[in-house]
Nucleic acid binder design. Sequence first.
RNA 1: GCGGGUGUGGCGGAAUGGUAGACGCCGGGGACUUAAAAUCCCCUGAGGUUUCCCUCGUGUGGGUUCGAGUCCCACCACCCGCACCA
Length: 844
Amino acid sequence: MTDTRFDPSQADARWQRAWEEAGTFHADSNSAKPKSYVLEMFPYPSGRIHMGHVRNYTMGDVLARYKKMRGYEVLHPMGWDAFGMPAENAAMEKGVHPGGWTRENIANMKSQLKRIGFALDWSREFATCDPEYYGHEQALFLDLYKAGLVYRRQSEVNWDPVDMTVLANEQVIDGKGWRSGAEVEKRKLDQWFLKITDFAEDLLDGLGALDNWPEKVRLMQENWIGKSTGLEFSFDLSNGDRVPVYSTRPDTIFGASFVAVAADHPVAQGVAAGNPDAAAFIELCKRGGTTAAELETAEKLGFDTGITARHPFTGAPLPVFIANFVLMDYGTGAIMGVPGHDDRDFEFATKYGCPILRVIAASAEAAGDPMSEAETGDGICVNSDFLDGMSVEEAKAAVNARAEAEGWGKGTTVWRLRDWGVSRQRYWGTPIPFIHCGTCGVVPVPKDQLPVTLPEDVDFKTPGNPLLRHPTWKHTTCPNCGAAAERETDTLDTFVDSSWYFLRFASQPADKPFDRDEVAKWLPVEQYIGGIEHAILHLLYARFWTRALQHIGQLDFAEPFASLFTQGMVTHETYSRVVGGRTVYFLPEEVERTGNGATLQDDRQPVEIGRVIKMSKSKKNTVDPDNIIDTYGADAARWFMLSDSPPERDLPWSEAGIEGCWRFVQRLWRLFGQVGAGGAGADAGEDKALDRKTHQTVAAVAQDIEALGFNKAVARIYELTAAIEKAAPSASRSNAIVTLVHLVAPMMPHLAEEAWSTVGGGGEGLIADAAWPEVDPALLVDDQVTIAVQHMGKLRDTLTAPKGASKEDLEAMALASEKVQRSIDGAAIRKVIVVPDRLVNIVT
RNA sequence: GCGGGUGUGGCGGAAUGGUAGACGCCGGGGACUUAAAAUCCCCUGAGGUUUCCCUCGUGUGGGUUCGAGUCCCACCACCCGCACCA
């Protein structure tokens, strides 16, 4: 090896070519080896790869390469989540076609990914906007329809009356359309739904078996599914109607002081018909946000209908309100208000003067205590007739039993989970394969006519759904009767696309979505890696879709992802100045970081250093992976992604940090050049301490990689590197260096290949195909251990003892310590605690 | 608002209830060099002491324990999700 520096600008591409030519990362479905499916969430082709992608894919890549070295047949695919709104936005803003824009982005991002040297099987690549892919998706959708899991019903959307278009929640800002600024209305449309609620119980139960999912993701899903048990009963109204309500707290029924119904509840509609004020109030509720967050934080508003409801036990008349915080979608769309024991009811009652009654208290004596806030905790029933003295749980059961016995109510399970609305009134998505016929109704497109492809000739000059206004596309004939009919112009939610892509990666027949047997070979995914932002929707939908396919007999398993890992974001500090009262941000590459400040390169004047936050275009705190790779090569960038921060936490990018990684790449390169100095690699044993360190590191790094503790693996590699550098030349040292090449191979594959091809005359083949080093268990244990000696729990001395020394010996050694004796200072020893191989604590 | 998470030196972080700060970054000092880059060595939680050590210290306040960053209770701060962004 003559070069003193590793040059990634020529080595990276050379090894990437070598892997490609050898088909190194091609996954063979017929392999006899044990399989491992490593998957990172596929990206939306926004145009450029960002550091978050690099981090996500580097983690998966290290695992995939490591698994391969451990003898697994690894499937590590990549593709594109290519449908979605940004492409339509680009079409509107730049006058480009969504398809062309997307294809161009994919090409750019693919070449970016290739430069990082990921061990991907590119032969399985696809984009969800490929007619082949979405055609199969349409077929699956029809299968689910046939199984009764797809239906249509009316549902509300955000309607922008100026742009004449449906808006996503994120396009509604303070109740106004993001483009038009017009007040957003709620409008009812016929929409397609998937019956995810049929699987609510199963999706909930399934969480229990997902041991290798983060606890917090399981909890989030559990809360999302939101199983609750309560009582459903009806109030008799003074106008002769009956209104069913649902409550999870029937034990507090004697504390009910009002009844509230949702704005779109039939009772509300009935009142509005004869009362313009009520109608106006309902209109008010329809404006403003629809999201749960907005409803919860918005001021509680109500309209007193003048109607009263008869309390089922006391017969007392309770006022009936229309309220903005009651949701038609949840329960029965009506509630009994118990201000004493529900936060929202308390706020509402305070505002509208309803009585706040205490019906739960810590003890019977506290029954008369005043209430300054809602008390939602446990206690016993008071002021509650026959419930007095019962616990909350007893009272719930007692009220339910009484209601059922008397026939005016019944115990019910209610789910927060709602059916999945998949209709989108947009162009750039999978067309929903149905036809509307004047005589036959809604008719599925026959499978032999799939895919229903998107028309190419569309314009985005006017707002609204281009499919709806396309001159010819929607006109067709009914497959049933042959009469003129119209195509469905809604497209599918892009979450449908990402609910089965992992199946298509595993198996790609031309004539069907996937082959059941081939899928069974690869699935479930051993390790799925992605952002926490997908903790609920994507992961829940994918779990549902898999169950739905199992239900209709197309799959043999229910859970697609055996292990899940959610990685943190890549963050960066921000650089800004206030110019004319406005904050102007600067890119890191425009800024020079000095000691504890920063200056703009253009004018040498200081800029303000802001908080370290998620990289975002608006704050300009982004770093382009291409620039980093141009400067430092792929391996330094990969190493940075793995160093320091635990993978589940945020990773702050810094120029100094990547410089450090670059120095380490070169440091390794110099060390790798020293194989053979002091003897050939075959005979270790000359340097027992180094042998031990080497084997301990191999075992620890393996363990860390398998637990995705990359930052710990990195720290151990630094330690071994330092130990080798300090060691005198020997066969042990040469062995250690060759081992080190293996250890870094999954993380810095280009450097490792370059070293492998040259060390000690050159290794056999590619190191990507090499086996992970064997560990000698005898070398994992040290024969000497350091014992901490404490007096009253405080460290006073340390001593070295043979491993496995007896408690008596350790105690004697500890008491012999001068420092310890000085600390004890003649006090009587009451107790000595000895933890073998760890510590001695003397208690006086 | 509801749900979830996080908090340890100047910074990122490490630590089966058992030596807090491994490892990296920044910073300081030195070696090499005509000089620089690169590289190598040493120091680097705070305070006291002055080369022997001592005291304090893991968001805050309590508690359990021989011993708490770790377990329990209460609080504070920040971050994420909330169903049409992906």
